[in-house]
Amino acid sequence: MDFTGIFRQIIISAPAILIAIVFHELAHGWVAYKLGDSTAKLSGRLTLNPLSHIDPFGTIIMPLMLIILTSGQWVFGYAKPVPVNPYNFKNPRAGMALCAAGGPAANLLVAIVSTVLLKWILLPFMGVIPDFIFNPTVLILKSTILINIVLAAFNLIPIPPLDGGRILMGILPLRYSEFMERIEPYGSLIVILLIVTGLTKIFVLPLVKFFYSILSLF
């Protein structure tokens, strides 16, 4: 096992993972706050401080395990869910759908900003900026782009409690929304089964390619 390579991947991926999950969760809380729900704000979650969003297993242990087990080829993580009370919204169903969409939208925005920084600000100074600063920064920005794109795509899988499932619950006719609400307690198991069988790729990979096509505009 290449421990040097794994350690290098951890150094590169850690900032990218933190950026992705912090902005993802912050966006959920910010959208909720703008729609009239102060639960996230009162819970101290409308902040860029990673300590407020870190989940010990999902943010630290699981990404480290994935880096080690896959030799740095696959990295993923999650944060503590932001508390939202839909009954504070004028339209609870629409409000929850908008809150859910906020997370992936924030990740896509972070990926766009990282692309602009990489392509238009950093790369033009290749050879001017010292390599010991330039090379790690390029790798971190590339990792930030990839992780944010994958996180956005994965969360849009249309199964609750993922964001895609919550978006569908907000826009589908009530009877279908109620059906999805009934399967939500089993949603995590369904998602794990899809990951184990590799079926998540059917949905995630096309979205990742689509998001990269958006980034190509920048």
Rank of each mutant, 00 (worst) to 15 (best):
G5Y: 10
G5V: 07
I11V: 15
L18P: 03
L18S: 04
A27S: 11
H28W: 12
V31R: 15
A32S: 07
K34T: 02
S38T: 15
K41N: 09
G44D: 02
T47D: 00
T47I: 01
P50N: 06
L51S: 07
L51R: 09
D55Q: 07
P56Y: 01
G58N: 03
T59K: 11
I60R: 08
I61M: 13
L64W: 14
I67Y: 05
W74H: 09
W74M: 09
V75P: 01
F76A: 00
K80Y: 01
N91A: 15
A97L: 14
G103F: 10
A105S: 06
N107P: 13
N107L: 07
V110C: 06
V113G: 01
V113W: 02
V113C: 06
V116P: 11
L118W: 12
L118Q: 01
W120D: 12
I121L: 14
P124M: 04
F125Q: 10
M126L: 13
I129M: 02
I129V: 13
D131N: 12
D131H: 14
F132Q: 12
F134P: 06
K142M: 14
T144I: 09
V150W: 15
L156I: 09
D163Y: 09
G165Q: 05
G165E: 02
R166Y: 05
G170H: 02
I171K: 02
L174Y: 07
L174S: 06
R182D: 06
I183Q: 00
I183R: 03
E184R: 14
E184Y: 08
P185R: 03
Y186S: 07
Y186D: 00
L189E: 01
I190Y: 10
I190G: 04
I195K: 12
I195Y: 14
V196E: 06
T197H: 03
G198Q: 05
G198V: 08
I202Y: 11
Y212V: 05
Y212D: 04
I214K: 07
